[in-house]
Simulated assay, not measured.
Amino acid sequence: MPYWLHFLILLIIAYVIISIAIYYLQDYLLFKPEKLPEDFQFYYENQDIKEYNLETRDGAVINALLFKPKGESKGIVFYLKGNSKSIKGWGKFAVDFTRHNYNVLMVDYRGFGKSTGRRSQKAIKRDLQEVYNKIKEETTEDRIIVYGRSLGSGFAAKLASMNNPKMLILDAPYYSLTKVTARYAPFMPLSILIKYPLPTYKWLKYVQCPIHIIHGTNDTLIPYKTSVRLSKVNPKLTRLHTVIGGGHKNLNNFESYHKMMHEIINSKSEQIDLSTTSIHVVHGTKRKTQG
């Protein structure tokens, strides 16, 4: 057998093995869950919380925490967290919304914290819609803010595209999870292998509420340019907020992030009379001279 043919066969075998490994191991690579015992007691200093368990139609249990503000509630933030830990650790971020007198509902995806059930993209989307439906039983959609952080940004975009919340906030979002993984495995057929493609850009096209995207310029996991691209998907409804120097996990350490959140949470969408602006002014035209 020629050397080149032998080498080609080995290359093909290696390619197939790697592809199979990516397909079956991606849950372990993508999700970093923290398991909690059923009797675990959540506690946050100076936070008023209530725990809920939602049983899904396939028998899974989705565990959730509701954080309540001290003042009269203006609405509720449905907070979809990232791919690691459990709501035990993510709960500390609720204060960024309760301080503005918003309730905050955080849920653990299947296999995280106290939540159970077999995990899949379809199952998680269905779970989140069921939780959203429960929220709608308690309040109107014009009081619901959907907030997606990192992994949760794709699910948040999907949820907003299927409903009519007050606004959608995406924190360090990805264009699609397939695009993110392609950075690490550029020669693999990821469109076939990835079980969680999460095409945020596709879902954003159908969102009809205001969209706010927050991203740090020094994010090395999901580059800032990702949000620049996403901001162009549904430009009339989208505003991009830039945290100069912010990374992927430390935006809450920047004063600018909290100023942005204050403006976003408390702002009112107003129509602008564009006829009174310079939007149609043409620059650089030359006047024709009379011959």
Results as ranks from 00 to 15, higher is better:
residue 81 K to R: 15
residue 76 I to Y: 05
residue 287 R to G: 15
residue 146 V to Y: 00
residue 233 V to Y: 04
residue 267 S to V: 01
residue 174 Y to K: 10
residue 47 Q to D: 02
residue 86 S to W: 11
residue 227 S to E: 02
residue 236 K to C: 08
residue 134 K to M: 12
residue 25 L to N: 07
residue 73 S to L: 11
residue 194 I to Y: 05
residue 199 P to C: 09
residue 197 P to V: 05
residue 248 H to S: 07
residue 222 I to E: 14
residue 29 L to K: 03
residue 217 T to K: 06
residue 285 T to S: 13
residue 8 L to I: 06
residue 243 V to S: 05
residue 3 Y to S: 11
residue 283 H to M: 14
residue 107 V to Q: 00
residue 196 Y to M: 09
residue 175 Y to I: 03
residue 205 K to T: 01
residue 47 Q to P: 04
residue 51 E to N: 15
residue 188 M to H: 12
residue 128 L to K: 08
residue 105 L to M: 06
residue 243 V to D: 08
residue 228 V to P: 02
residue 195 K to R: 14
residue 291 G to H: 14
residue 274 L to P: 01
residue 175 Y to S: 12
residue 85 K to H: 14
residue 120 S to M: 01
residue 167 M to G: 00
residue 243 V to E: 04
residue 170 L to W: 11
residue 223 P to N: 08
residue 162 M to I: 13
residue 203 W to L: 14
residue 222 I to D: 12
residue 207 V to R: 07
residue 152 G to W: 05
residue 85 K to W: 15
residue 162 M to E: 14
residue 242 T to M: 13
residue 107 V to R: 02
residue 41 Q to P: 00
residue 174 Y to N: 10
residue 216 G to R: 14
residue 76 I to R: 00
residue 148 G to T: 08
residue 114 K to D: 04
residue 204 L to I: 05
residue 270 E to Q: 15
residue 122 K to S: 08
residue 211 I to P: 07
residue 211 I to N: 11
residue 220 T to S: 15
residue 141 E to A: 07
residue 59 G to K: 11
residue 151 L to A: 03
residue 197 P to W: 02
residue 63 N to Y: 06
residue 100 H to M: 07
residue 2 P to N: 13
residue 277 T to C: 10
residue 5 L to E: 02
residue 195 K to G: 06
residue 252 N to C: 05
residue 208 Q to Y: 11
residue 96 D to K: 04
residue 96 D to I: 07
residue 289 T to Q: 13
residue 88 K to A: 06
residue 222 I to Y: 03
residue 274 L to Q: 06
residue 70 K to V: 15
residue 40 F to W: 09
residue 234 N to K: 08
residue 267 S to L: 08
residue 165 P to F: 03
residue 99 R to I: 07
residue 205 K to G: 06
residue 144 I to Q: 07
